[in-house]
Amino acid sequence: MQVQVKLFAFFREGRFIKEDRELPEGCTVGEVVDTLNINREEIGVLMLNSRHCQFDTVLHEGDICAIFPVIGGG
C-alpha cells in the first residue's frame, strides 16, 4: 500500500520533507519511525490524516502520516 510520510523540523535533516512510501499491509506508525532511523524517544507528535495517533496505530492505503520531534512555541 502507498502512504505519504511527512517529516518536520530537524527530522528532515538527511532525510526528506515529504515522500510517498510503499509499505506492507498492517504496517504501524511506529514501524515507519523505526525504518527512518528516528529514535522513538525523540518523537513529540505523530499525526495520521491530521489527527493525533500512537506508535501502534495501523496505517491504511492513502493515509498521510506526519512525524514531529518535540517542539513548542506560542
Binding site: K6, F8, A9, F10, E42, G44, V45, M47, S50, H52, A66, F68, P69, V70, I71, G72, G73, G74
Partner: peptide, 23 residues
C-alpha cells in the same frame, strides 16, 4: 527541555507546519 532546544533553532514559527497539519 527539548522544546527549549527547538525554540532556539526554529523560533516560535516552528508551529506553522504542525498547526496546519492539525487543521
Amino acid at each position: 527541555h527539548p522544546v527549549s532546544q527547538a525554540l532556539g533553532t526554529y523560533g516560535t514559527n516552528v508551529l506553522i507546519n504542525i498547526i496546519n497539519e492539525a487543521g
